[in-house]
Deep mutational scan, measured.
Amino acid sequence: QKPIVRVFLPNKQRTVVPARCGVTVRDSLKKALMMRGLIPECCAVYRIQDGEKKPIGWDTDISWLTGEELHVEVLE
């Protein structure tokens, strides 16, 4: 079983991306966001920890988040 990260996107959409070492959250999600007309710069990404949303940086190595759920939200 490959290491993955589940990602909840705006508009009730979601995707799953591989959690590859040395790849940033930005690079992992860029294609999924672009297909939906979004760019990382207009969004914020969060991980859910103890039921709370914790913001994470787009430059975080995605392999550190293996098995986690991330939420991407459009910044107002």
Results as ranks from 00 to 15, higher is better:
57 G>K: 12
11 N>V: 02
47 R>N: 08
60 T>P: 01
58 W>L: 08
4 I>Y: 06
25 V>R: 00
43 C>A: 07
26 R>E: 12
54 K>Y: 07
46 Y>I: 13
66 T>P: 10
63 S>P: 01
8 F>V: 05
5 V>L: 02
36 R>D: 12
20 R>K: 14
25 V>E: 00
56 I>C: 09
36 R>C: 05
15 T>K: 03
34 M>G: 11
19 A>R: 05
16 V>W: 05
53 K>G: 04
68 E>K: 13
38 L>D: 03
70 L>H: 01
41 E>V: 04
12 K>P: 00
59 D>N: 07
55 P>D: 15
43 C>I: 04
66 T>I: 09
71 H>F: 10
46 Y>S: 13
61 D>H: 10
66 T>K: 12
50 D>A: 07
45 V>Y: 07
46 Y>T: 10
20 R>Q: 12
7 V>I: 10
50 D>W: 05
6 R>N: 05
70 L>A: 13
41 E>I: 03
5 V>G: 00
15 T>F: 09
8 F>M: 14
1 Q>L: 14
47 R>D: 06
15 T>N: 01
67 G>K: 11
40 P>M: 15
19 A>S: 09
35 M>G: 11
13 Q>D: 04
19 A>T: 06
69 E>N: 15
76 E>C: 05
49 Q>K: 08
52 E>S: 09
31 K>A: 06
6 R>D: 03
19 A>F: 02
49 Q>S: 13
3 P>F: 13
32 A>G: 08
6 R>T: 06
60 T>E: 13
33 L>Q: 02
61 D>E: 08
72 V>F: 01
9 L>F: 10
30 K>C: 04
58 W>A: 03
39 I>W: 06
31 K>C: 05
55 P>W: 07
47 R>G: 12
15 T>E: 04
9 L>V: 01
71 H>W: 11
7 V>W: 00
34 M>K: 15
3 P>R: 15
39 I>S: 13
31 K>W: 02
1 Q>R: 07
64 W>I: 13
22 G>A: 05
48 I>Y: 14
70 L>C: 07
57 G>N: 07
15 T>D: 02
33 L>W: 02
40 P>H: 11
33 L>G: 08
1 Q>A: 07
13 Q>K: 04
51 G>Q: 11
41 E>F: 02
41 E>Q: 10
33 L>H: 02
39 I>D: 14
63 S>E: 11
4 I>S: 05
53 K>P: 07
56 I>K: 00
60 T>N: 09
47 R>W: 07
48 I>V: 14
69 E>M: 05
59 D>M: 07
18 P>R: 13
1 Q>K: 15
51 G>N: 15
22 G>T: 03
10 P>M: 01
17 V>A: 04
33 L>N: 03
40 P>T: 14
8 F>K: 11
31 K>R: 08
32 A>M: 05
9 L>W: 11
60 T>G: 11
22 G>C: 06
69 E>R: 05
29 L>K: 00
47 R>I: 05
56 I>M: 09
72 V>D: 00
31 K>V: 04
63 S>C: 05
6 R>Y: 03
72 V>N: 00
3 P>H: 15
3 P>W: 03
28 S>G: 09
73 E>A: 08
2 K>T: 03
7 V>G: 00
70 L>G: 02
64 W>H: 14
53 K>M: 06
21 C>R: 15
59 D>V: 04
73 E>I: 01
39 I>F: 11
35 M>L: 14
7 V>C: 08
20 R>E: 11
19 A>C: 07
35 M>P: 10
70 L>N: 01
49 Q>E: 12
55 P>Y: 15
72 V>C: 08
53 K>F: 13
70 L>Y: 02
50 D>H: 14
65 L>T: 06
33 L>P: 03
57 G>I: 12
67 G>L: 06
55 P>E: 13
38 L>Q: 09
65 L>H: 13
52 E>M: 07
31 K>Q: 10
62 I>D: 01
51 G>S: 09
68 E>D: 09
2 K>I: 15
58 W>F: 11
59 D>Y: 03
72 V>H: 00
36 R>E: 09
8 F>A: 12
39 I>Y: 11
27 D>R: 08
55 P>L: 13
41 E>P: 07
20 R>M: 12
55 P>Q: 12
10 P>V: 01
35 M>Y: 11
40 P>C: 13
25 V>L: 13
34 M>T: 15
49 Q>H: 06
33 L>A: 02
27 D>N: 05
14 R>F: 14
64 W>N: 10
66 T>W: 03
45 V>M: 11
41 E>N: 13
48 I>K: 14
24 T>P: 06
54 K>A: 07
10 P>A: 02
13 Q>W: 03
56 I>G: 01
46 Y>R: 06
9 L>A: 00
74 V>Q: 15
41 E>K: 07
1 Q>W: 03
19 A>G: 05
38 L>S: 05
65 L>I: 09
56 I>L: 08
5 V>P: 00
2 K>M: 07
26 R>I: 13
75 L>M: 14
63 S>L: 04
35 M>V: 14
20 R>H: 10
62 I>S: 08
65 L>Y: 06
76 E>A: 07
50 D>K: 14
37 G>S: 14
68 E>M: 10
57 G>H: 05
75 L>P: 13
45 V>W: 01
55 P>F: 13
26 R>S: 10
36 R>T: 09
11 N>C: 01
49 Q>N: 12
59 D>F: 04
15 T>R: 02
24 T>K: 08
34 M>F: 04
52 E>P: 08
6 R>A: 05
69 E>G: 06
49 Q>I: 10
4 I>C: 02
9 L>C: 01
63 S>W: 07
72 V>M: 04
61 D>G: 04
74 V>N: 12
29 L>P: 00
28 S>T: 07
62 I>W: 02
71 H>P: 00
10 P>F: 02
74 V>I: 08
11 N>K: 05
3 P>T: 06
21 C>E: 15
68 E>A: 12
39 I>A: 14
68 E>Y: 06
26 R>Q: 15
50 D>T: 04
60 T>A: 11
26 R>K: 14
3 P>Q: 14
53 K>N: 04
30 K>E: 07
16 V>K: 06
32 A>C: 12
25 V>H: 01
54 K>M: 05
15 T>G: 01
13 Q>L: 04
12 K>S: 11
50 D>G: 07
40 P>N: 10
69 E>A: 06
75 L>T: 14
19 A>W: 02
28 S>H: 01
8 F>G: 04
48 I>S: 09
42 C>D: 15
39 I>Q: 15
71 H>E: 11
45 V>I: 14
7 V>D: 00
75 L>Y: 06
56 I>Q: 10
57 G>E: 12
33 L>T: 03
57 G>W: 05
29 L>F: 03
66 T>D: 13
22 G>D: 04
69 E>H: 09
17 V>H: 01
64 W>A: 13
72 V>E: 00
57 G>A: 10
29 L>W: 00
36 R>Y: 09
74 V>C: 14
42 C>H: 15
34 M>S: 14
27 D>C: 10
59 D>W: 04
13 Q>M: 10
16 V>A: 10
20 R>G: 07
76 E>V: 06
26 R>N: 09
10 P>G: 02
63 S>D: 04
62 I>F: 04
42 C>I: 07
23 V>M: 08
32 A>H: 08
55 P>N: 13
22 G>Q: 09
9 L>N: 00
67 G>F: 02
20 R>P: 13
1 Q>S: 05
44 A>W: 06
59 D>T: 09
27 D>P: 00
37 G>F: 04
75 L>Q: 13
7 V>F: 14
60 T>R: 11
17 V>P: 00
57 G>Y: 05
43 C>P: 00
19 A>E: 01
4 I>L: 03
32 A>D: 09
70 L>T: 04
17 V>T: 03
70 L>D: 00
4 I>A: 02
46 Y>G: 04
53 K>C: 09
44 A>F: 06
61 D>R: 05
21 C>I: 13
55 P>V: 13
38 L>I: 15
60 T>I: 14
13 Q>T: 05
28 S>I: 02
10 P>K: 00
11 N>L: 04
12 K>C: 06
9 L>H: 00
62 I>E: 01
43 C>V: 08
59 D>E: 12
